[in-house]
């Protein structure tokens, strides 16, 4: 059962990582235009370098 001492913090840490990613995406206004983002990925325009 000692393994729990490692596994529980690991699982909590992974969950927290997911939560942080979600908060980051939310703060970065990535939920503003879901339809547009779904379409933008199909465009080749900024494939070689990021949009300034």
């Amino acid at each position: 059962m000692e393994i729990l001492g490692i596994l529980i913090p690991v699982s909590l840490g992974l969950g927290a990582l997911g939560l942080l990613a979600f908060v980051w995406a939310l703060r970065g206004r990535q939920y503003e235009d879901p339809k547009g983002d779904a379409e933008r990925i199909l465009s080749k325009e900024w494939d070689d370098r990021p949009k300034p």
Partner: peptide, 24 residues
Amino acid sequence: DRIGRDILMRIGVSGFAMMNIMIL
């Protein structure tokens, strides 16, 4: 937008908590 983001944030936090508590 701010109100919407606020609710989404709370959904995210409670979703994270729910999954971890469920495992336990």
